[in-house]
Design a protein around this nucleic acid. Structure first.
Lengths: 219, 219
DNA sequence: ACCTGAACACCGTTCAAGT
DNA sequence: ACCTGAACACCGTTCAAGT
Protein backbone atom coordinates (compact mmCIF):
# COMPACT_ATOMS: atom_id res chain seq x y z
CA UNK A 1 0.00 0.00 0.00
CA UNK A 2 2.81 2.42 -0.79
CA UNK A 3 1.89 5.59 -2.60
CA UNK A 4 4.23 4.77 -5.45
CA UNK A 5 2.46 1.56 -6.48
CA UNK A 6 -0.25 3.16 -8.56
CA UNK A 7 -1.72 0.77 -11.06
CA UNK A 8 -3.93 2.95 -13.21
CA UNK A 9 -7.67 2.47 -12.91
CA UNK A 10 -9.65 0.76 -15.62
CA UNK A 11 -13.18 -0.45 -16.05
CA UNK A 12 -11.99 -3.98 -15.49
CA UNK A 13 -10.13 -3.15 -12.29
CA UNK A 14 -13.18 -1.33 -10.96
CA UNK A 15 -15.42 -4.31 -11.66
CA UNK A 16 -12.99 -6.81 -10.15
CA UNK A 17 -12.77 -4.70 -7.02
CA UNK A 18 -16.55 -4.45 -6.86
CA UNK A 19 -16.94 -8.22 -7.04
CA UNK A 20 -14.29 -8.70 -4.35
CA UNK A 21 -15.98 -6.12 -2.16
CA UNK A 22 -19.38 -7.76 -2.55
CA UNK A 23 -17.89 -11.18 -1.83
CA UNK A 24 -16.34 -9.94 1.36
CA UNK A 25 -18.83 -7.44 2.74
CA UNK A 26 -22.03 -7.90 0.77
CA UNK A 27 -23.65 -5.89 -1.97
CA UNK A 28 -24.60 -3.10 0.42
CA UNK A 29 -20.93 -2.33 0.90
CA UNK A 30 -20.51 -1.66 -2.81
CA UNK A 31 -20.74 2.07 -2.80
CA UNK A 32 -18.89 4.37 -5.17
CA UNK A 33 -16.95 5.92 -2.32
CA UNK A 34 -16.05 2.61 -0.69
CA UNK A 35 -15.13 1.12 -4.03
CA UNK A 36 -12.80 3.99 -4.78
CA UNK A 37 -11.22 3.69 -1.36
CA UNK A 38 -10.58 0.00 -2.02
CA UNK A 39 -8.76 1.04 -5.20
CA UNK A 40 -6.79 3.80 -3.54
CA UNK A 41 -8.57 6.50 -5.52
CA UNK A 42 -11.29 9.09 -5.09
CA UNK A 43 -14.92 8.26 -5.79
CA UNK A 44 -15.06 10.77 -8.60
CA UNK A 45 -12.24 9.05 -10.44
CA UNK A 46 -14.43 6.03 -11.03
CA UNK A 47 -16.67 8.05 -13.28
CA UNK A 48 -13.95 8.27 -15.84
CA UNK A 49 -14.13 4.49 -16.34
CA UNK A 50 -17.74 3.82 -15.58
CA UNK A 51 -20.90 5.71 -16.49
CA UNK A 52 -22.71 5.41 -13.18
CA UNK A 53 -23.36 3.00 -10.38
CA UNK A 54 -25.93 1.05 -12.40
CA UNK A 55 -23.15 0.49 -14.89
CA UNK A 56 -21.01 -1.02 -12.15
CA UNK A 57 -23.84 -3.34 -11.15
CA UNK A 58 -24.45 -4.40 -14.75
CA UNK A 59 -20.71 -4.93 -15.02
CA UNK A 60 -20.35 -7.25 -12.06
CA UNK A 61 -23.29 -9.31 -13.29
CA UNK A 62 -21.36 -9.67 -16.51
CA UNK A 63 -18.22 -10.70 -14.64
CA UNK A 64 -20.07 -13.43 -12.74
CA UNK A 65 -21.87 -14.61 -15.88
CA UNK A 66 -18.54 -14.90 -17.67
CA UNK A 67 -17.21 -16.90 -14.75
CA UNK A 68 -20.19 -19.21 -15.21
CA UNK A 69 -19.53 -19.56 -18.92
CA UNK A 70 -15.90 -20.45 -18.23
CA UNK A 71 -16.90 -23.14 -15.78
CA UNK A 72 -19.67 -24.50 -17.98
CA UNK A 73 -17.37 -24.70 -21.00
CA UNK A 74 -15.29 -27.25 -19.13
CA UNK A 75 -18.23 -29.52 -18.30
CA UNK A 76 -18.18 -32.89 -20.03
CA UNK A 77 -21.16 -33.93 -22.05
CA UNK A 78 -23.47 -36.50 -20.48
CA UNK A 79 -25.18 -39.45 -22.16
CA UNK A 80 -28.08 -37.27 -23.32
CA UNK A 81 -29.30 -33.67 -23.42
CA UNK A 82 -30.82 -33.95 -19.96
CA UNK A 83 -27.69 -35.13 -18.24
CA UNK A 84 -25.61 -32.52 -20.01
CA UNK A 85 -28.00 -29.73 -19.09
CA UNK A 86 -28.08 -30.98 -15.54
CA UNK A 87 -24.29 -30.94 -15.24
CA UNK A 88 -24.03 -27.47 -16.74
CA UNK A 89 -26.68 -26.06 -14.43
CA UNK A 90 -25.10 -27.58 -11.34
CA UNK A 91 -21.74 -26.20 -12.44
CA UNK A 92 -23.26 -22.74 -12.83
CA UNK A 93 -24.75 -23.10 -9.41
CA UNK A 94 -21.34 -23.59 -7.88
CA UNK A 95 -20.35 -20.14 -9.10
CA UNK A 96 -23.31 -18.61 -7.27
CA UNK A 97 -22.18 -20.37 -4.12
CA UNK A 98 -18.99 -18.31 -4.38
CA UNK A 99 -20.96 -15.09 -4.92
CA UNK A 100 -23.92 -15.28 -2.58
CA UNK A 101 -25.02 -11.72 -3.30
CA UNK A 102 -25.36 -12.50 -7.00
CA UNK A 103 -28.81 -14.13 -7.17
CA UNK A 104 -30.48 -11.06 -5.68
CA UNK A 105 -28.59 -8.79 -8.06
CA UNK A 106 -29.27 -10.90 -11.14
CA UNK A 107 -32.95 -10.61 -10.33
CA UNK A 108 -32.94 -6.83 -10.38
CA UNK A 109 -31.15 -6.22 -13.68
CA UNK A 110 -33.47 -5.09 -16.44
CA UNK A 111 -31.08 -5.20 -19.37
CA UNK A 112 -29.70 -8.66 -19.95
CA UNK A 113 -26.01 -9.32 -19.80
CA UNK A 114 -24.38 -10.57 -22.97
CA UNK A 115 -22.70 -13.40 -21.10
CA UNK A 116 -26.09 -14.51 -19.78
CA UNK A 117 -27.43 -14.50 -23.33
CA UNK A 118 -24.51 -16.63 -24.42
CA UNK A 119 -25.23 -19.06 -21.60
CA UNK A 120 -28.82 -19.42 -22.71
CA UNK A 121 -27.77 -19.62 -26.33
CA UNK A 122 -25.71 -22.71 -25.67
CA UNK A 123 -28.56 -24.20 -23.66
CA UNK A 124 -30.86 -23.66 -26.62
CA UNK A 125 -28.31 -25.36 -28.85
CA UNK A 126 -28.10 -28.31 -26.50
CA UNK A 127 -31.85 -28.79 -26.44
CA UNK A 128 -32.00 -28.40 -30.19
CA UNK A 129 -29.56 -31.29 -30.59
CA UNK A 130 -31.66 -33.18 -28.08
CA UNK A 131 -34.58 -33.06 -30.45
CA UNK A 132 -36.71 -30.18 -29.16
CA UNK A 133 -38.57 -27.73 -31.36
CA UNK A 134 -37.86 -24.02 -30.97
CA UNK A 135 -41.30 -23.54 -29.53
CA UNK A 136 -40.77 -26.20 -26.89
CA UNK A 137 -37.39 -24.75 -26.00
CA UNK A 138 -38.91 -21.33 -25.58
CA UNK A 139 -41.41 -22.79 -23.11
CA UNK A 140 -38.61 -24.67 -21.40
CA UNK A 141 -36.58 -21.52 -20.78
CA UNK A 142 -39.55 -19.89 -19.13
CA UNK A 143 -40.28 -23.00 -17.09
CA UNK A 144 -36.72 -23.15 -15.84
CA UNK A 145 -36.41 -19.43 -15.19
CA UNK A 146 -33.49 -18.65 -12.90
CA UNK A 147 -33.04 -22.37 -12.27
CA UNK A 148 -31.39 -22.63 -15.67
CA UNK A 149 -28.56 -20.54 -14.24
CA UNK A 150 -28.31 -22.42 -11.00
CA UNK A 151 -30.43 -20.76 -8.36
CA UNK A 152 -34.05 -20.51 -7.42
CA UNK A 153 -36.05 -17.91 -5.59
CA UNK A 154 -37.54 -19.21 -2.36
CA UNK A 155 -40.03 -17.08 -0.50
CA UNK A 156 -39.87 -18.72 2.84
CA UNK A 157 -37.34 -20.94 4.43
CA UNK A 158 -38.65 -24.21 5.83
CA UNK A 159 -35.28 -24.88 7.41
CA UNK A 160 -35.22 -21.58 9.27
CA UNK A 161 -38.57 -22.41 10.85
CA UNK A 162 -37.28 -25.78 11.95
CA UNK A 163 -34.45 -24.34 13.99
CA UNK A 164 -35.87 -20.96 15.05
CA UNK A 165 -38.28 -20.73 17.92
CA UNK A 166 -41.83 -20.15 16.67
CA UNK A 167 -44.07 -18.35 19.19
CA UNK A 168 -46.82 -20.67 20.40
CA UNK A 169 -49.55 -18.28 19.34
CA UNK A 170 -48.27 -18.17 15.77
CA UNK A 171 -47.64 -21.90 15.70
CA UNK A 172 -51.33 -22.44 16.46
CA UNK A 173 -52.18 -20.57 13.26
CA UNK A 174 -49.81 -22.69 11.19
CA UNK A 175 -50.80 -26.24 12.10
CA UNK A 176 -49.88 -27.79 8.77
CA UNK A 177 -46.54 -26.07 8.47
CA UNK A 178 -45.57 -26.82 12.05
CA UNK A 179 -46.66 -30.41 11.57
CA UNK A 180 -44.56 -30.73 8.49
CA UNK A 181 -41.49 -29.12 10.00
CA UNK A 182 -41.63 -31.14 13.19
CA UNK A 183 -41.59 -34.31 11.14
CA UNK A 184 -38.67 -33.30 8.99
CA UNK A 185 -35.21 -33.67 10.38
CA UNK A 186 -33.01 -31.61 8.17
CA UNK A 187 -29.45 -32.79 8.36
CA UNK A 188 -27.72 -30.48 5.94
CA UNK A 189 -28.50 -26.92 7.01
CA UNK A 190 -25.18 -25.50 5.88
CA UNK A 191 -25.11 -25.78 2.13
CA UNK A 192 -27.81 -23.23 1.49
CA UNK A 193 -27.68 -20.63 -1.24
CA UNK A 194 -29.66 -17.44 -1.10
CA UNK A 195 -33.17 -18.17 0.07
CA UNK A 196 -32.79 -21.63 1.59
CA UNK A 197 -32.02 -23.64 -1.40
CA UNK A 198 -29.84 -26.47 -0.43
CA UNK A 199 -28.30 -28.83 -2.88
CA UNK A 200 -30.68 -31.75 -2.54
CA UNK A 201 -33.76 -29.55 -2.82
CA UNK A 202 -32.37 -27.68 -5.77
CA UNK A 203 -31.69 -30.93 -7.57
CA UNK A 204 -35.13 -32.28 -6.74
CA UNK A 205 -36.83 -29.28 -8.34
CA UNK A 206 -34.45 -29.26 -11.26
CA UNK A 207 -34.96 -32.93 -12.03
CA UNK A 208 -38.70 -32.54 -11.75
CA UNK A 209 -38.59 -29.92 -14.51
CA UNK A 210 -35.97 -31.63 -16.68
CA UNK A 211 -37.83 -34.94 -16.49
CA UNK A 212 -41.09 -33.18 -17.34
CA UNK A 213 -39.49 -31.52 -20.34
CA UNK A 214 -37.89 -34.75 -21.49
CA UNK A 215 -41.28 -36.42 -21.48
CA UNK A 216 -42.61 -33.70 -23.78
CA UNK A 217 -39.78 -34.11 -26.25
CA UNK A 218 -40.70 -34.72 -29.85
CA UNK A 219 -39.22 -38.00 -31.19
CA UNK B 1 -55.83 18.90 1.13
CA UNK B 2 -56.94 21.49 3.70
CA UNK B 3 -54.77 21.86 6.75
CA UNK B 4 -57.69 21.04 9.05
CA UNK B 5 -58.25 17.52 7.70
CA UNK B 6 -55.59 15.82 9.74
CA UNK B 7 -56.23 12.13 10.08
CA UNK B 8 -53.64 11.00 12.62
CA UNK B 9 -50.85 8.80 11.38
CA UNK B 10 -50.74 5.13 12.19
CA UNK B 11 -48.64 2.18 11.15
CA UNK B 12 -51.44 1.01 8.93
CA UNK B 13 -51.85 4.36 7.19
CA UNK B 14 -48.12 4.53 6.59
CA UNK B 15 -48.09 1.07 5.01
CA UNK B 16 -51.15 1.77 2.86
CA UNK B 17 -49.54 4.97 1.61
CA UNK B 18 -46.32 3.11 0.88
CA UNK B 19 -48.14 0.52 -1.20
CA UNK B 20 -50.02 3.23 -3.10
CA UNK B 21 -46.78 5.10 -3.70
CA UNK B 22 -45.02 1.99 -4.99
CA UNK B 23 -47.99 1.15 -7.23
CA UNK B 24 -47.91 4.59 -8.76
CA UNK B 25 -44.23 5.49 -8.92
CA UNK B 26 -42.32 2.31 -8.23
CA UNK B 27 -40.42 1.08 -5.23
CA UNK B 28 -37.62 3.59 -5.73
CA UNK B 29 -40.07 6.38 -4.95
CA UNK B 30 -40.75 4.92 -1.53
CA UNK B 31 -38.43 7.02 0.62
CA UNK B 32 -39.20 8.11 4.15
CA UNK B 33 -39.34 11.75 3.10
CA UNK B 34 -41.57 11.18 0.08
CA UNK B 35 -43.81 8.88 2.06
CA UNK B 36 -44.25 11.49 4.78
CA UNK B 37 -45.00 14.13 2.17
CA UNK B 38 -47.70 11.88 0.74
CA UNK B 39 -49.23 11.70 4.20
CA UNK B 40 -48.96 15.42 4.85
CA UNK B 41 -46.42 14.94 7.60
CA UNK B 42 -42.70 15.24 8.21
CA UNK B 43 -40.34 12.33 7.59
CA UNK B 44 -39.42 12.18 11.24
CA UNK B 45 -43.02 11.64 12.27
CA UNK B 46 -43.05 8.25 10.60
CA UNK B 47 -40.53 6.95 13.11
CA UNK B 48 -43.13 7.13 15.81
CA UNK B 49 -45.17 4.46 14.04
CA UNK B 50 -42.47 2.47 12.33
CA UNK B 51 -39.07 1.37 13.51
CA UNK B 52 -37.10 2.07 10.35
CA UNK B 53 -37.37 1.82 6.61
CA UNK B 54 -36.78 -1.93 6.61
CA UNK B 55 -39.83 -2.13 8.83
CA UNK B 56 -41.86 -0.30 6.19
CA UNK B 57 -40.67 -2.73 3.51
CA UNK B 58 -41.48 -5.75 5.67
CA UNK B 59 -44.84 -4.15 6.31
CA UNK B 60 -45.84 -3.67 2.70
CA UNK B 61 -44.84 -7.25 1.92
CA UNK B 62 -47.24 -8.23 4.68
CA UNK B 63 -49.99 -6.03 3.21
CA UNK B 64 -49.63 -7.62 -0.23
CA UNK B 65 -49.47 -11.12 1.25
CA UNK B 66 -52.66 -10.47 3.18
CA UNK B 67 -54.28 -9.29 -0.03
CA UNK B 68 -53.24 -12.60 -1.57
CA UNK B 69 -54.71 -14.56 1.32
CA UNK B 70 -58.00 -12.68 0.98
CA UNK B 71 -58.21 -13.47 -2.72
CA UNK B 72 -57.15 -17.08 -2.27
CA UNK B 73 -59.72 -17.66 0.47
CA UNK B 74 -62.46 -16.98 -2.06
CA UNK B 75 -61.16 -19.50 -4.61
CA UNK B 76 -63.43 -22.49 -5.13
CA UNK B 77 -61.99 -25.94 -4.71
CA UNK B 78 -61.26 -27.85 -7.89
CA UNK B 79 -61.83 -31.53 -8.59
CA UNK B 80 -58.53 -32.49 -6.96
CA UNK B 81 -55.54 -31.08 -5.07
CA UNK B 82 -53.79 -30.13 -8.29
CA UNK B 83 -56.63 -28.11 -9.73
CA UNK B 84 -57.22 -26.38 -6.41
CA UNK B 85 -53.55 -25.50 -6.02
CA UNK B 86 -53.49 -24.28 -9.59
CA UNK B 87 -56.46 -21.97 -9.06
CA UNK B 88 -55.04 -20.60 -5.84
CA UNK B 89 -51.66 -19.90 -7.37
CA UNK B 90 -53.16 -18.17 -10.39
CA UNK B 91 -55.35 -16.10 -8.08
CA UNK B 92 -52.28 -15.08 -6.08
CA UNK B 93 -50.58 -14.18 -9.32
CA UNK B 94 -53.31 -11.69 -10.14
CA UNK B 95 -52.43 -9.77 -7.01
CA UNK B 96 -48.84 -9.44 -8.17
CA UNK B 97 -50.10 -8.08 -11.47
CA UNK B 98 -51.57 -5.22 -9.47
CA UNK B 99 -48.30 -4.67 -7.58
CA UNK B 100 -45.55 -5.10 -10.14
CA UNK B 101 -42.84 -3.98 -7.75
CA UNK B 102 -43.73 -6.73 -5.30
CA UNK B 103 -41.88 -9.73 -6.79
CA UNK B 104 -38.54 -7.95 -6.56
CA UNK B 105 -39.27 -6.89 -2.99
CA UNK B 106 -40.49 -10.31 -1.87
CA UNK B 107 -37.22 -11.70 -3.09
CA UNK B 108 -35.13 -9.46 -0.87
CA UNK B 109 -36.88 -9.98 2.46
CA UNK B 110 -34.93 -12.16 4.86
CA UNK B 111 -37.50 -12.56 7.60
CA UNK B 112 -40.64 -14.21 6.35
CA UNK B 113 -43.97 -12.45 6.59
CA UNK B 114 -46.60 -14.12 8.72
CA UNK B 115 -49.16 -13.83 5.94
CA UNK B 116 -46.78 -15.64 3.58
CA UNK B 117 -46.37 -18.39 6.17
CA UNK B 118 -50.16 -18.69 6.38
CA UNK B 119 -50.37 -18.95 2.62
CA UNK B 120 -47.88 -21.80 2.58
CA UNK B 121 -49.57 -23.39 5.57
CA UNK B 122 -52.81 -23.75 3.68
CA UNK B 123 -50.95 -25.09 0.66
CA UNK B 124 -49.36 -27.72 2.88
CA UNK B 125 -52.83 -28.58 4.17
CA UNK B 126 -54.16 -28.92 0.66
CA UNK B 127 -51.37 -31.27 -0.39
CA UNK B 128 -51.78 -33.26 2.79
CA UNK B 129 -55.44 -33.87 1.92
CA UNK B 130 -54.29 -34.74 -1.57
CA UNK B 131 -52.35 -37.66 -0.18
CA UNK B 132 -48.79 -36.36 0.03
CA UNK B 133 -46.35 -37.16 2.81
CA UNK B 134 -44.78 -34.32 4.75
CA UNK B 135 -41.45 -35.13 3.20
CA UNK B 136 -42.83 -34.92 -0.32
CA UNK B 137 -44.58 -31.66 0.47
CA UNK B 138 -41.37 -30.20 1.77
CA UNK B 139 -39.69 -31.07 -1.49
CA UNK B 140 -42.65 -29.66 -3.39
CA UNK B 141 -42.41 -26.28 -1.68
CA UNK B 142 -38.77 -26.02 -2.66
CA UNK B 143 -39.51 -27.12 -6.20
CA UNK B 144 -42.21 -24.52 -6.59
CA UNK B 145 -40.28 -21.72 -4.91
CA UNK B 146 -41.77 -18.34 -5.71
CA UNK B 147 -44.06 -19.98 -8.26
CA UNK B 148 -46.21 -21.16 -5.37
CA UNK B 149 -47.03 -17.51 -4.75
CA UNK B 150 -47.68 -16.65 -8.36
CA UNK B 151 -44.51 -15.32 -9.93
CA UNK B 152 -41.24 -16.64 -11.26
CA UNK B 153 -37.82 -15.15 -11.64
CA UNK B 154 -36.71 -14.93 -15.24
CA UNK B 155 -33.15 -13.96 -16.01
CA UNK B 156 -33.52 -12.96 -19.56
CA UNK B 157 -36.50 -11.97 -21.60
CA UNK B 158 -36.96 -13.87 -24.86
CA UNK B 159 -39.76 -11.50 -25.83
CA UNK B 160 -37.58 -8.44 -25.43
CA UNK B 161 -35.05 -9.88 -27.82
CA UNK B 162 -37.75 -10.56 -30.37
CA UNK B 163 -38.82 -6.96 -30.63
CA UNK B 164 -35.61 -5.09 -29.83
CA UNK B 165 -32.95 -4.69 -32.47
CA UNK B 166 -30.03 -7.02 -31.81
CA UNK B 167 -26.72 -5.75 -33.23
CA UNK B 168 -25.56 -8.01 -36.06
CA UNK B 169 -22.23 -8.67 -34.39
CA UNK B 170 -23.90 -9.91 -31.24
CA UNK B 171 -26.50 -11.88 -33.18
CA UNK B 172 -23.69 -13.81 -34.82
CA UNK B 173 -22.57 -14.97 -31.39
CA UNK B 174 -26.05 -16.12 -30.48
CA UNK B 175 -27.06 -18.30 -33.40
CA UNK B 176 -29.32 -20.63 -31.46
CA UNK B 177 -31.12 -17.90 -29.57
CA UNK B 178 -31.63 -15.78 -32.66
CA UNK B 179 -32.84 -18.81 -34.55
CA UNK B 180 -35.34 -19.61 -31.87
CA UNK B 181 -36.61 -16.05 -31.55
CA UNK B 182 -36.99 -15.53 -35.26
CA UNK B 183 -39.19 -18.60 -35.43
CA UNK B 184 -41.41 -17.61 -32.55
CA UNK B 185 -44.10 -15.07 -33.20
CA UNK B 186 -45.15 -13.86 -29.81
CA UNK B 187 -48.63 -12.43 -29.96
CA UNK B 188 -49.22 -11.45 -26.35
CA UNK B 189 -46.40 -9.13 -25.31
CA UNK B 190 -48.53 -7.07 -22.92
CA UNK B 191 -49.47 -9.40 -20.11
CA UNK B 192 -46.00 -9.72 -18.69
CA UNK B 193 -45.20 -9.65 -15.00
CA UNK B 194 -41.82 -8.74 -13.68
CA UNK B 195 -39.18 -10.47 -15.71
CA UNK B 196 -41.07 -11.45 -18.82
CA UNK B 197 -43.39 -13.99 -17.45
CA UNK B 198 -46.57 -13.91 -19.42
CA UNK B 199 -49.62 -15.85 -18.48
CA UNK B 200 -49.24 -18.76 -20.88
CA UNK B 201 -45.59 -19.30 -20.02
CA UNK B 202 -46.26 -19.10 -16.33
CA UNK B 203 -48.99 -21.71 -16.62
CA UNK B 204 -46.78 -23.97 -18.73
CA UNK B 205 -44.07 -24.02 -16.08
CA UNK B 206 -46.55 -24.34 -13.26
CA UNK B 207 -48.33 -27.29 -14.86
CA UNK B 208 -45.03 -28.97 -15.59
CA UNK B 209 -44.22 -28.90 -11.89
CA UNK B 210 -47.70 -29.71 -10.61
CA UNK B 211 -47.99 -32.65 -13.01
CA UNK B 212 -44.56 -33.86 -11.99
CA UNK B 213 -45.52 -33.68 -8.32
CA UNK B 214 -48.83 -35.40 -8.94
CA UNK B 215 -47.02 -38.30 -10.55
CA UNK B 216 -44.89 -38.69 -7.45
CA UNK B 217 -47.90 -38.81 -5.15
CA UNK B 218 -48.21 -41.72 -2.79
CA UNK B 219 -51.48 -43.61 -3.28
C1' DA C 1 -5.71 11.23 -20.91
C1' DC C 2 -6.58 10.57 -16.38
C1' DC C 3 -7.64 12.04 -11.78
C1' DT C 4 -9.43 15.19 -8.00
C1' DG C 5 -11.83 18.95 -4.67
C1' DA C 6 -15.54 21.32 -3.83
C1' DA C 7 -20.31 21.35 -4.12
C1' DC C 8 -25.24 19.84 -4.81
C1' DA C 9 -29.29 17.31 -4.03
C1' DC C 10 -30.75 13.60 -1.86
C1' DC C 11 -30.86 9.68 1.60
C1' DG C 12 -31.98 7.32 6.59
C1' DT C 13 -31.86 8.33 11.25
C1' DT C 14 -30.91 10.74 16.11
C1' DC C 15 -32.33 13.63 19.53
C1' DA C 16 -34.00 17.26 22.02
C1' DA C 17 -37.80 20.05 21.84
C1' DG C 18 -42.45 21.40 20.95
C1' DT C 19 -47.90 20.68 21.46
C1' DA D 1 -49.20 10.69 23.11
C1' DC D 2 -47.97 12.40 18.99
C1' DC D 3 -45.37 15.30 15.93
C1' DT D 4 -41.43 18.36 14.35
C1' DG D 5 -36.74 21.20 13.38
C1' DA D 6 -32.25 21.00 13.34
C1' DA D 7 -28.44 18.23 12.66
C1' DC D 8 -25.44 14.16 11.38
C1' DA D 9 -23.40 10.82 8.53
C1' DC D 10 -23.86 8.99 4.41
C1' DC D 11 -25.24 8.53 -0.64
C1' DG D 12 -24.69 9.32 -6.19
C1' DT D 13 -23.34 12.66 -9.31
C1' DT D 14 -21.78 17.45 -11.66
C1' DC D 15 -18.40 20.34 -12.99
C1' DA D 16 -14.54 23.04 -13.27
C1' DA D 17 -9.94 22.51 -12.29
C1' DG D 18 -5.62 20.22 -11.73
C1' DT D 19 -1.51 17.05 -13.65
Amino acid sequence: MTTEARIPLSRERVLQAAVALADEHGLRAVTMRRLAEELGAEAMSLYYHVAKKEDVLDGIVEVVAEEINDVVARVDRGPDWKQTARRRILAARRVFLRHRWAPALFGTRSSTSIAVLKYYDSLVGLMREGGFSHDRIHHALHALGSRALGFSQELFDPNAGASAEVPAELAAQLPNLVGMLSEIAHDDPDSTLGWCDDQAEFEFGLDLILDGLDRLREP
